[in-house]
Write a protein that binds this DNA or RNA. Structure first.
Lengths: 213, 213
DNA sequence: TTTTAATATAATTGC
DNA sequence: GCAATTATATTAAT
């Protein structure tokens, strides 16, 4: 099997997701991820899988402790599972959201105003907060400096290297972008590449070897 | 001008923010607030603006002392402004944390990763702590009992009534929720309505008049 | 020491 | 993917 590096990452990600949601079927997005048609689209990732072992040791421990945390989390909704939980939330949000006026609907800017009527802040809604080790954070930040918009394949490889589930990695990058790219845009000196300047840079293959440790 | 009560609150909030950041341009979130399109969406807030004067007297004094406090704070970073300050903090958080021992890193509890080396001077890292008067605290607590999740419009009105900048109000409610709702969840006797029991209660219009003092 | 304002960040939701 | 929020954890001032 020659070009199975990407596939290996996907498989790992799927297994990670099972760890992530032990008593649950994967959420819709992730079910979608493993569809066969989806697996056919990976073709342009040239990764050196031989040099990636640097974080593997940490990964084991991380997986263990993470499993404990996640079990705690899932114990809060042991029967219904995530999809039910999400459905509940959506039903809530949908049913209780007030309808928009014409003026509101025609706004160009998104209004930061939210209806007080869609507040179902049940404590069980939120996943137990995970915290990442120093090495994981540094690795993620290095990845962020290289490419703040990793695609799914890259997120899978990051997941495999760090032992962090791929959905967590996606969230991490989202939050990171929100905090840093936006801030950099408003200030004069940009420490990190912003989204615009970065577009042509993401897929330069020459940067890829740096990713593997 | 008939339906300008909400607008008045927004304008007041903007002015409050200028007081809050005297030598700075408002932070991004607040710049967003004053966009003209934003001002068009307030329509369904039924506030009795005539009965809100009870805290106005206090507000004047509060504004004065607050201005002094905030000036002290801003004098510490007179040129760079908030965004630079944030960047400094972020920069510090980025690269300079001490390395963890294995045991520390593998803790299930959050491991503290912070640098002793390059912490910014303590005096500049945190905003000068503001303290609220008894009347303000009582009013905020009443608001919290009515609705622990005030939206932006309501926060603006609270800001106008109490003379407290809207960002401070948001932080106050955040901290209040963290302390109070969590406590209520963990203990048997719930003194305040918790998030779940609260849901059907927030939107009773009959409670709204109480909000205006 | 205790309380709480301020900060940082992971997670959620709606668009 | 982003904006705005929430929960959560921690720091630091009172």
């Amino acid at each position: 099997m020659a070009c199975d590096a990407e596939l290996e990452q996907i498989v790992y990600t799927v297994l990670t997701l099972q760890d992530d949601y032990p008593c649950l079927s994967p959420p819709p997005r992730d079910q979608h991820m493993v569809s066969p048609s989806f697996l056919g689209i990976f073709h342009d990732l040239h990764s050196n899988m031989e040099t990636k072992g640097c974080l593997q040791e940490r990964q084991k421990h991380q997986n263990r402790s993470m499993k404990i945390q996640l079990q705690e989390w899932s114990e809060k909704t042991p029967l219904e599972g995530i999809s039910i939980e999400i459905q509940k939330n959506n039903a809530y949000a949908k049913g209780t959201k007030r309808s928009l006026s014409e003026d509101e609907a025609h706004e160009t800017k998104r209004s930061k105003i939210q209806s007080e009527k869609l507040q179902p802040p049940v404590s069980t809604r939120y996943r137990k907060r995970t915290n990442y080790s120093k090495e994981q954070t540094i690795f993620l930040q290095n990845q962020f400096d290289i490419n703040p918009y990793p695609d799914f394949v890259r997120r899978c490889s990051i997941a495999k290297i760090t032992g962090i589930p791929e959905p967590r990695i996606q969230v991490w990058f989202q939050n990171r972008r929100a905090r840093h790219l936006l801030k950099a845009t408003n200030s004069q000196e940009r420490k990190a590449p912003c989204a615009e300047t970065f577009t042509g840079f993401i897929y330069k293959e020459s940067h890829y070897p740096d990713i593997w440790c």
